[in-house]
Design a binder for these strands. Structure first.
Lengths: 225, 225
DNA sequence: GTCTGTTTTAAACATACGTTTGAAGCCAAT
DNA sequence: ATTGGCTTCAAACGTATGTTTAAAACAGAC
């Protein structure tokens, strides 16, 4: 090999270990020993551990955000002048994620877990990096959601979007463990695609829930402030 | 002070710091300096950092699980021989959480965030501890959910419960930050109680979503494996 | 006051971490 | 063959971590 593939080996090992154990729980020494490269290689090629984390995300997110923008383009065009529905918007996102070319069979689930960790773990530098680099497609997704749920008040929509993000990030962030539990219990295998197909209708139904259910059942001691 | 309140001061500081920064990102020195106690006090009173983490959870979870069991008792009794509805079950849980006596105004949101971290962060010892100590009320909640959603297949129910947990843990875990954002944007104040009142109908609607929505819209390339 | 068991303290310990260093290795161009 | 620019390597650096130690401080009982 004329030019070594050290960089890719580091990225592969880091991606997998970060997804398994989180960022601060994964040391550079674990990464370099899994990648079978010298410890100093990380700082030589990436500069720092934080920069390596950014690179792991960029390797997936850059092509993904391009795919997503294209999917939104097609969706909006096919809808003419009326806005895409909630279901269409959610599916456009889901399909873009599921159809991304993957390095291996664990591809999506690894990356979903990383995204979940990014949101959950309070890594300030990561959130800032993701916002700066990939804030645009996210804003566009939010705009589509707004147009698809005109019946919701701004406050309701705001909270329900948080609920959706939560269900998604949380489930994906622990999806490997959850899948294993389910398989042990019922023997059923579940792919990330199938999880996504179960998640979307759950989210869509939640987003469109009737407000009337907001009233607690009789005997409740909770009251609106 | 005859006998110092060192133990409680450590627990208070640890609880807040863990919630803010996660477990491995919080050092014993941060905790002891915030609590204004000697570094060795943690190992003296608790034995180890992991044992301190367990103690933080036990201080809240023990009274909470008692309250919850009582709420479930009352609910099942008031329902006679037919099982409680999904809404009733969710509200019983929500009210038990909201009505717990709190040490301060941040009480619930801190603890929700800790619960989220416990699930998300791959701390094996913690998951094992929580399962052993508080598995019973959790199983009971699951049983109630099962009785309240007989129309769902076991697999569907399993995943939808995960989605519910995710939306709840995630939202509650960052509810302080989210509340602030919303207030800055719209000037609207939101209490934890109000968030809960918006969350429950979202979850109930998601749980009861029609399976027919599982079919992707026309033109979709996603297929069930 | 003296003793006794508990709690607090400052200091040290061993280990692990991210990062840096300077020499060695390598490969293509001169 | 020699140069020059990347890349790899073993070793070390400085710092931070959880934990342990042994002495000091304290409180209540006699």
């Amino acid at each position: 090999m004329a030019q070594s593939d050290t960089v890719d080996r580091i990225l592969d090992a880091a991606e997998e270990l970060f997804a398994e154990r989180g960022f601060s729980e994964t040391s550079l020494r674990m990464i370099t020993s899994k990648a079978k490269v010298n410890l100093a290689a990380v700082n030589y090629h990436f500069g720092s551990k934080n920069a390596l984390i950014h690179a792991v995300f960029a390797r997936f997110l850059t092509p993904f955000s391009a795919t997503l923008e294209k999917a939104f383009d097609e969706l909006e065009e096919s809808c003419g002048d009326q806005p895409p529905t909630l279901n269409q918007t959610l599916w456009a996102l889901t399909e873009s994620a599921v159809r991304m070319p993957q390095r291996n069979e664990k591809g999506i689930s690894i990356f979903m877990r990383l995204l979940g960790l990014a949101y959950t773990q309070s890594q300030g530098h990561l959130r800032k990096f993701l916002e700066q680099e990939y804030g645009d497609p996210f804003s566009r997704f939010m705009r589509l959601l707004k147009a698809a749920t005109p019946q919701l008040s701004a406050v309701d929509r705001y909270w329900r979007i948080q609920f959706m993000l939560g269900a998604t990030a949380f489930t994906m962030s622990s999806s490997d463990a959850l899948r294993d539990i389910l398989q042990n219990k019922t023997g059923v295998e579940t792919s990330v695609q199938e999880i996504a197909m179960r998640l979307v209708p759950f989210l869509a139904a939640g987003m469109q829930a009737e407000d009337t259910m907001l009233v607690p059942p009789r005997g409740s001691k909770v009251s609106v402030a």
